[in-house]
């Protein structure tokens, strides 16, 4: 596994910002630390973490724990302990989404729909343990935000218009929150309705905001499958809100949207 990006970190004088980008899991992870200090050790840990997640969870790597589990070559008890953690989270989210989110694909274990958000949320927690209270970790468009962008200024997250990806549809501001989007825009129709087995096609895209990116990521996927029903569904999920965008450009949001002053 070769790293295409050097690990050198640049810290600017003012405002304090350390930025880093890592290609992993077929996407791009961007780290933006807004605390003063030297963060290269923290970012080294973060990068190691992302690649470890990839090694354990990638369904595209035949030797990953998830691939071996799916082939029946590995018992859960013998797998990396994080696998159990993730599968438990998948079960929780599956229950919350009334089965719309599932880690079972054609009878095989595939927690991919939750792993990236979870990895990013854990990466943010890792930065906190290293002493950073203000940072953003963005995993290919799913973002966990800690603290604020600058003293007194909340983070501003642009949400891509799924019907015209040159535009930002709207922005969300907040502190200590997560934003996840789902849709076919970049990877084609990759989200399947587990009840029909067919690609979900009702919406152009969904964005979910809430405290945890692990859940927001999976909820955004589930909301995409649910279509119009997503708004009603998420009203029963405390602390989370959804914005659903239709192919014609119409938008519908749950009552909690836009999430104000987190």
């Amino acid at each position: 596994m070769s790293r295409t990006v050097s690990r050198a970190v640049t810290t600017l004088e003012a405002p304090p910002r350390t930025r880093y980008v890592e290609h992993c899991m077929g996407t791009v992870f961007s780290v933006d630390v807004r605390d003063r200090g030297e963060w290269s050790a923290a970012i080294d840990d973060l990068v190691d973490w992302l690649h470890r997640v990839d090694e354990v969870f990638s369904p595209f790597k035949p030797g990953s724990d998830v691939s071996r589990l799916a082939r029946g070559e590995l018992r859960l008890a013998d797998a990396d302990p994080e696998v159990r953690t993730v599968l438990e989270l998948c079960a929780e989210v599956s229950a919350t989404t009334e089965g719309t989110f599932t880690a079972l694909v054609d009878g095989r274990i595939d927690p991919t729909g939750l792993v990236k958000g979870w990895a990013v949320e854990r990466a943010s927690a890792l930065l906190r343990r290293h002493g950073s209270a203000n940072h953003a970790v963005n995993g290919g468009g799913d973002v966990q935000l800690a603290g604020e962008a600058a003293p007194g200024r909340p983070w501003t997250v642009g949400i891509v218009d799924p019907n015209d990806r040159t535009r930002v549809l709207t922005t969300v501001e907040g502190r200590d929150f997560a934003v996840a989007s789902s849709g076919p825009a970049e990877r084609g129709a990759h989200i399947r309705d587990p009840f029909t087995g067919r690609p979900a096609a009702g919406l152009a895209g969904t964005t979910v905001v809430g405290p945890s990116l692990t859940r927001a990521d999976a909820y955004a996927t589930a909301a995409f499958v649910m279509g119009r029903d997503a708004v009603r569904w998420i009203a029963g999920v405390p602390e989370y809100a959804v914005l659903a965008v239709f192919p014609g450009g119409a938008t519908v949001a749950s009552r909690g949207w836009p999430p104000a002053g987190r």
Partner: peptide, 26 residues
């Protein structure tokens, strides 16, 4: 001009053109 700190959208792949402009921006 938008003062956006970061962006959320359907998953970005690291293939192709992205890497090129991104490396320039980096």
């Amino acid at each position: 001009s938008a003062h956006i700190d970061t962006v959320s959208g359907a998953t970005v792949t690291s293939d192709g053109y992205l890497g090129s402009l991104q490396s320039a921006l980096d």
